[in-house]
Amino acid sequence: MVATMAAEIFAQQTVNGLILGATYGLIAIGYTMVYGIIGMINFAHGEIYMVSAYLAAIFLAVLHFFGLTSVPLLLVAVLLATVLVTALYGWFVEKIAYRPLRHSTRLAPLITAIGVSLILQNYVRIAQGARSQGMPSLLQGSFILPVGDQGGVVQITYVQLLIIIVAFLSMAVLTFIMQGTSMGRACRATEQDRIMAALLGIDTNRIIAIVFVIGAAMAAIAGVLVSLNYGSFDFHIGFITGIKAFTAAVLGGIGSLPGAMLGGLILGLAESFFAGFVNSDYKDVFAFSLLVLVLIFRPSGLLGQPQITKV
């Protein structure tokens, strides 16, 4: 009986961990790409994700108000609108807070990033109120799968399935963009050597802006999916999720796209097993400790290249 319980918890936590990990992975892409291209931690990225959660709920309410009731149509419309506006946020933030500091000291962009995240957080708090907001569950129902031979079950909701599918689809599309298109090539060239890329006629400012936009769009997808899954959010969510997604990016090897997804999945699984089997109060502490440990013992992550200091 105990074994069945444990197996059930294990299976359920695996599912939860994968869901969590997929969203961390999506957000981590923003960190990893921005870091890859300008070598800077975009602290405001978590807040972009938070804004996207609000945007999703707002667009859903508006579309619903105008009489759109078909669920698939609603989902697609909300996703598109949220991704668009969030991407615009990403672009705007880069333009006013980071671009003017391109040739500044190393510390300056980090500080403006903190400033921007404070601005976004409190802007949303003032505009939308401090209480937590909700989002109706559009997709109800779930698959029930048996676990073991003693009648244990594991539940996978449709939303969770959707999260996994959309997460991997967006990863695939992004990988295609980065590997197969000329814009992706320009991005990778800029990542390798910004000055050289500029000399070869690549508009590096535009490329950097595009990277911010892509990161924000990925965070927006995560924001929509997470809000659909949990149904509630507040203006604080960006901070904690942001650090965890960064942990995922570092874990997978910062600068590497597959690494971000892999790191996200590992972190999600680790966190959800920790919460299921050890102590759910300390799951955030566990995630942060993991970050510190990874940075100390394997700063290049699982798939990243060790950095060579240029002298």
Binding site: I96, L101, I111, T112, G115, L118, I119, Q121, N122, Y123
Partner: peptide
């Protein structure tokens, strides 16, 4: 806090 954030960005730029 909003103003602090704004001030940090403006100062750095």
């Amino acid at each position: 806090i909003l103003v602090f954030g704004l001030a940090m960005v403006v100062m750095m730029i």
